[in-house]
């Protein structure tokens, strides 16, 4: 039988004990404490960008690392939600939380439509189908008037949270973004460690056996696809609020590639890998921005090295050293 991508990647034995293991609790606590002081140490917008991409990569990892499905078109949900949220905030004048919800809902619907078609093929075809549909969303975004074509949707107002708390200030917005992304990542953690997550794992390891046990495999695949698309959308919608901008970059295939890279680098099928990968890639882009095309080349090199020598990713390697799932 063929091995799935995540199977080769020392998948962690999860959810053997009830509740969150102490180590994970400690890491989440330290991470939260760090993130609370972070906006006073670095530029808050940069920190918010990292958090948005961390949520995006974690959502993508739910599908690849835990569902064993490689989508090469996650930019469609990220960028699609970003457009809808920006439109909702700017044209409909919705408050930030409602705008983000609109964007997220749009990503869920898009994920349902594309997912229902894509799960009809497996493996390599699945990747090509998702990529092709994402390209369709890209062309669509290029042509329809509401996205603003090449210009995108600019100067999106940040508005007042619940109509009460103004988010113009970067630090205020930071804590909104922190609450949503951290909550989102904890929710994804919960999904992975739920009975639903266990069924996903069973399907990933041995699909025919899961079918013979009576699981409706396609329904599970579609559910995880929609969940992943929804959280990718949540990340994209937040990003449009942070940068007050929604553009074609967010729906381009290069964005789909970036999220794959973040997950691969951090460690597929690990809890913390995507967060580490996102932090590294975003930081790298930030420092190398002046080098133009070199950023693409370096990303390509990381891909090649990652696939050839380093398939477990950073967190995967650490997890193996300390013999504990991370």
């Amino acid at each position: 039988m063929e091995k799935t991508a995540a199977e080769t990647n020392h998948a962690a034995p999860v959810a053997e004990q009830a509740g969150m293991p102490g180590l994970h609790k400690a890491i989440f606590a330290v991470l939260l404490a760090f993130l609370v002081v972070l906006p006073f140490l670095v530029y808050p917008v940069f920190a918010m960008k990292v958090m948005c991409f961390a949520l995006f990569a974690a959502a993508f990892n739910l599908l690849l690392g835990f569902g064993g499905l490689l989508s090469f078109g996650h930019a469609a949900y990220f960028g699609g939600a970003s457009y809808v949220a920006a439109h909702a905030a700017k044209v409909w004048g919705l408050t930030p939380e409602l705008a983000v919800l609109c964007g997220t809902a749009a990503a869920a619907v898009l994920g349902l439509a594309i997912g229902a078609l894509a799960i009809r093929r497996q493996g390599i075809y699945f990747a090509m189908v998702t990529l092709a549909f994402a390209q369709m969303v890209y062309f669509f975004s290029l042509q329809v008037p509401f996205t603003g074509g090449e210009d995108g949707i600019q100067s999106v107002p940040r508005g007042d949270l619940f109509g009460l708390i103004p988010l113009e200030d970067n630090v205020a917005l930071y804590f909104f973004v922190l609450a949503v992304t951290f909550g989102g990542i904890l929710f994804l953690y919960r999904i992975v460690h739920s009975p639903f997550g266990q069924v996903l794992k069973a399907i990933r390891e041995n699909e025919p056996r899961a079918i013979s046990l009576g699981y409706n495999v396609n329904r599970y695949k579609l559910m995880v696809f929609v969940l992943s698309a929804t959280f990718a959308g949540l990340a994209g919608a937040l990003k449009s609020q942070v940068f007050q901008l929604s553009s074609l970059t967010d729906v381009h295939w290069a964005m789909s590639g970036e999220v794959v890279l973040m997950t691969l680098l951090g460690g597929m099928g690990t809890i913390f890998g995507p967060l580490v990968g996102a932090a590294i890639i975003v930081t790298m882009q930030n420092y190398l921005a002046t080098f133009g095309a070199w950023v693409t080349i370096i990303q390509g090199v990381i891909f090649v090295i990652g696939v050839l020598l380093f398939r477990e990713g950073i967190v995967g390697v650490i997890s193996r050293w300390i013999k504990r799932p991370l």
């Binding site: 080769t8 490689l70 090469f72 990747a127 390509g300």
Partner: peptide, 24 residues
Amino acid sequence: HLDHLYGLLLTFGLALIIQGLFRN
């Protein structure tokens, strides 16, 4: 000997490098 998906990821990385070099 690995999953087909790694071939896709590797060649994607190669595509980025080749395109990036010519663009540069």
